[in-house]
Amino acid sequence: MNRRIATGRAVVNEFAKMRHLSVGLVSTVMVIGVLALSLFAVASSPDFDPDTPDAWNALLGGMSLGVPLISPLLLAVLASRQVDIEHQGSGWLLQSTSGITPGEVCRAKLVALGIIVTAITIGTNLIVLIVGKLLAGILPPAPLGHWAGFTFCMLAVNLAVLALHILLSAKVENQLVALGIGVLGCILAVFSQGLPAAAAHVTPWGYYALAQAAGYQGDQLLMLPISYPSIVALAVIVGVVFAVLTFRFDRQEA
């Protein structure tokens, strides 16, 4: 019970730290960026017709491009800022004296930031859905099942990338390394959409392409199948890696 209380206190502490880390600003940029790219996809599509069910593909295609173009870097920023405060202020040592190991700190950071990223991802998808109905005036019913699957998969990839960046930022004090990898992640995530599925499996950022809900095949914008087994496998593998490495952090501290 005492361990659960300590873990809960660590998560609360992470939320308290966010007030000084511009988490709200970064979150707002993520939402506005994806929304803007989704609307741009609608405005730039010559075949957009709000009276046809295919009109939703323009929004799904815009989000399928907007999330991988924006999220990898901003997730790196969120993780870097949340972890760098421990490097700068001897936070690892201070929390160890309170009985909270570095591994527990990393897990608390994932829980706290994971709640924020979950809210951003689900909220952005809902906003785009509402905008498509009210602002774009799309009349046919939205493909809610496909949309929900896309949301789940993008959330799973976002959380996996977030977890890896927390580990990276915890091990490497120079946060420019983490931010540089975040930029590289954006490039890999976008270019993976033009690669074979086997190539997209090579890096965590390639899984954004496997979660793509709509895109162009030739000159036609079509709804695309989502690779659910691959996304689930990524979530499981990253979850295991995160757990193993953070528990190693605990043993190293001991």
Rank of each mutant, 00 (worst) to 15 (best):
P68V: 02
R107K: 08
H87R: 05
G33H: 02
W205V: 01
S64W: 04
E86H: 09
R81M: 03
I166N: 03
G185L: 04
Q82P: 00
L37V: 11
R248I: 10
S90L: 12
F48V: 03
C186G: 08
T121L: 07
G185M: 04
I127L: 09
H87E: 08
L176Q: 14
L176V: 15
V26I: 15
D219Q: 10
K133H: 07
G33I: 03
L184W: 11
G61F: 08
D219C: 05
G62P: 00
I120G: 00
P140M: 06
L245Q: 15
E173F: 14
M30F: 12
P72H: 12
A200G: 09
Y216Q: 09
A136C: 09
I115E: 10
F15S: 01
Q82D: 04
I70N: 03
I226M: 08
A76D: 03
N158F: 10
Q217R: 10
D250S: 04
G206H: 04
A10T: 01
V236M: 04
R19Y: 13
S44M: 13
A119K: 11
L162F: 07
K133L: 12
M63Y: 11
L126C: 07
G182I: 04
Q88M: 10
G103A: 02
A235T: 00
C186L: 14
A243D: 12
N13G: 10
H87Y: 12
P225C: 10
T101I: 08
S27V: 01
D54M: 13
G33Y: 06
C153I: 04
A243H: 12
L245R: 14
D49A: 13
R251G: 11
V77Y: 06
V238P: 00
L37Q: 14
D250A: 03
K17F: 05
F152G: 07
V202S: 06
C106G: 08
C186H: 07
A10M: 02
V244G: 05
A142E: 09
A163F: 12
G218R: 07
G206S: 07
K109Q: 03
H20R: 13
S64A: 14
S169Q: 08
T52I: 07
I115F: 13
N13D: 11
H201A: 11
A233G: 09
L134H: 06
D219E: 09
F242G: 00
L195R: 08
V236E: 02
L144Q: 05
T118N: 09
Q217F: 14
D84K: 15
A119M: 10
H165I: 06
V23P: 00
L94D: 10
L73F: 11
F150N: 04
A198R: 04
I166S: 07
V11T: 05
L179H: 05
L59S: 09
S27Y: 02
I120F: 02
V157L: 13
S96V: 07
